[in-house]
């Protein structure tokens, strides 16, 4: 590689081995206690807080040279955050990268779970801004820890109650609180609630890293994850009531794209790899153009 000399200045995957051991211990503890927020000594990373410093550290601690890494931001492989993190690990770890969900062994994600079902052996790493689901209801960290310890989660339902009282339905549409394995209430990071059902009983290991807040938590494979709701206002995994305009998919999460000043808009899959895969397989949506000859 042309950047070999530059790369050699760093340890494999940027972090030193002691730091990776420390993070792996936190990850193991998190996997052993699903949904529990494990404190860890988060390091300064060469990117600003809010850009995925927690996820990057977890990914760095998980990576081995044989891994194939995929990075997505809001489902897309080609947005700034995804591109820069992918390039970061190409330079510092030299691992192979891919955009195909099925080929990746480690997937770092910001705000989405890929549409393609994950398989055993895959690791999904989430970037988490605020790990504490009770934070905006109870500002004191001492108190929220006590509430987790004693399973006092009534307050979480007060938030949902307020939603219904104000909007007539549970208006929380992302970072929708879940209960893991019947014990800990967890913030699934700001994924749309459409993705919540994929959290539970998933074959992959799901790891959550919050760099600024210095917390790691995890959902091991095939874990029960339940979205909180009321008996008479059950949880609904909502999405825009449209089909993808490029690939025609009916069941995927959609981005709304404004296309001119006259209010025209199109809906496209937020998962770019999923959408491309479908178009290559010959599916065409309302505004889509057939892809000639499959792979471009």
């Amino acid at each position: 590689m042309t950047q070999a000399s530059e790369t050699n200045a760093y340890n494999f995957a940027y972090l030193d081995e002691q730091t990776k051991r420390m993070i792996r211990r936190a990850i193991l503890k998190g996997v052993a206690v699903p949904g529990y927020q494990v404190p860890f000594a988060s390091r300064e990373m060469p990117m600003p807080y809010g850009w995925g410093t927690g996820g990057v550290q977890v990914t760095a601690a998980c990576l081995v040279p044989e891994d194939r890494l995929k990075v997505i931001d809001q489902g897309a492989d080609d947005t700034t955050n995804a591109v820069s993190i992918r390039k970061f690990f190409q330079r510092t770890a030299g691992v192979a990268v891919t955009e195909a969900t099925g080929e990746a062994t480690v997937i770092q994600t910001r705000h989405r779970i890929p549409e393609t079902p994950l398989t055993e052996g895959q690791i999904l790493v989430y970037q988490v801004p605020i790990p504490e689901p009770l934070r905006f209801l109870e500002p004191r960290e001492t108190e929220t820890r006590k509430m987790h310890e004693l399973e006092e989660y009534g307050l979480m339902h007060v938030k949902l109650y307020e939603d219904i009282a104000r909007h007539g339905e549970i208006a929380t549409s992302y970072a929708y609180p879940v209960k893991v394995e019947g014990r800990y209430v967890m913030d699934p990071s700001p994924i749309p609630k459409f993705d919540n059902p994929k959290l539970g009983d998933n074959a992959a290991i799901q790891l959550f890293g919050a760099g600024r807040e210095q917390r790691i938590y995890a959902v091991p494979p095939y874990t029960q994850v339940v979205s909180l709701d009321f008996d008479d206002h059950p949880f609904v995994a909502s999405k825009a009531p449209h089909d993808c305009d490029l690939c025609g998919a009916k069941g995927s999460y959609l981005d709304e794209v404004i296309t001119d000043d006259a209010g025209s808009r199109m809906y496209v899959c937020s998962d770019t790899d999923f959408c491309t895969g479908r178009r290559e397989a010959g599916h065409v949506g309302r505004l889509g153009v057939a892809m000639a000859g499959g792979v471009a």
């Binding site: 009534g154 307050l155 339902h157 007060v158 219904i164 009282a165 709701d229 009321f230 008479d232």
Partner: peptide
């Protein structure tokens, strides 16, 4: 920061009430 109804309902929800109505 929580409405009057939410304030009254909090203790109910804390002891397991899960029916909004």
């Amino acid at each position: 920061g929580v409405s009057a109804g939410g304030n009254v309902g909090e203790r109910l929800m804390a002891i397991g009430a899960r029916h909004y109505g």
